[in-house]
Design a protein around this nucleic acid. Sequence first.
DNA 1: TGCGACACGTGAGCC
DNA 2: TGGCTCACGTGTCGC
Lengths: 167, 167
Amino acid sequence: MAERRRRKRLNDRLSMLRSIVPKISKMDRTSILGDTIDYMKELLERIGKLQEEEMEEGTNQINLLGISKELKPNEVMVRNSPKFDVERRDLDTRISICCATKPGLLLSTVNTLEALGLEIHQCVISSFNDFSMQASCSEAEEQRNCMNLEEIKQALFRNAGYGGKCL
Amino acid sequence: MAERRRRKRLNDRLSMLRSIVPKISKMDRTSILGDTIDYMKELLERIGKLQEEEMEEGTNQINLLGISKELKPNEVMVRNSPKFDVERRDLDTRISICCATKPGLLLSTVNTLEALGLEIHQCVISSFNDFSMQASCSEAEEQRNCMNLEEIKQALFRNAGYGGKCL
DNA sequence: TGCGACACGTGAGCC
DNA sequence: TGGCTCACGTGTCGC
């Protein structure tokens, strides 16, 4: 009587579950519940990964804007010291500059790079507080062989108004 | 006997389900299944939203790099025509350029901006295919009043090697 | 013949 | 008290 209706409700829910869960190994009652559990765990895992990616995307955007604060606590004191990094990859040469800003610094830096035979392909600049520039350049093969990284570094360093040797 | 073990298995799965699903209205068997269904739907919805956001983030990054393809089909023919936009906001002046690239274009563009009294604060550049530049500049108050957007636009236009009037 | 899964009816416990 | 949920034992069907 009433028990009959109760059983029907329960079976209805069970078939709803079976219709939602994609992976159904057997039509078995226990298997349905087991597959449901597995599927839910899988969904939770996917959500975790997606949220993680979302976080990374956020920090990536910040880095793209060149506002990367380099938050490692033990580097706080070094943060404001000028940084001139030049790195050669397979296809391009990466320039990374962070130093005190001054009028015309961007112009003279671009000028220096062009003079050095470095053609800027992609570049992100920020000069709100410090002057920051991340550039990806192409460099003629001959050039790569005759000029070393330290020379480029020195040229950028001098251009930014720092007299002596680079760090 | 055997039926007893079978029932136990089913009940175990049921309590596993109850331990995973956070929203438990009643300890009721039917309610547990119902809540499980609701929770799974909620998870699916969240996954859908996260993936949607992921897509948007992707296109945002592309836009940040200035490679925005402006994919509206009816604008395909316009895509390669040069674009020089200048826009004044409250605090800054936004420059958006997309045109054919040529050697030294970045240098001369930066030069032109400086000559116009525009100080670049943030800037993203790409010159893989077309030359693309999105810049956020500051401009002296006096300057804002005496030079209009069209003049800046024309200067950039001429600098990029286009002779006549801008679009 | 046994084994596993299911539905059924029933009694117990709980508001 | 009636209404409910659950566990139990049992009968049935299919492999």
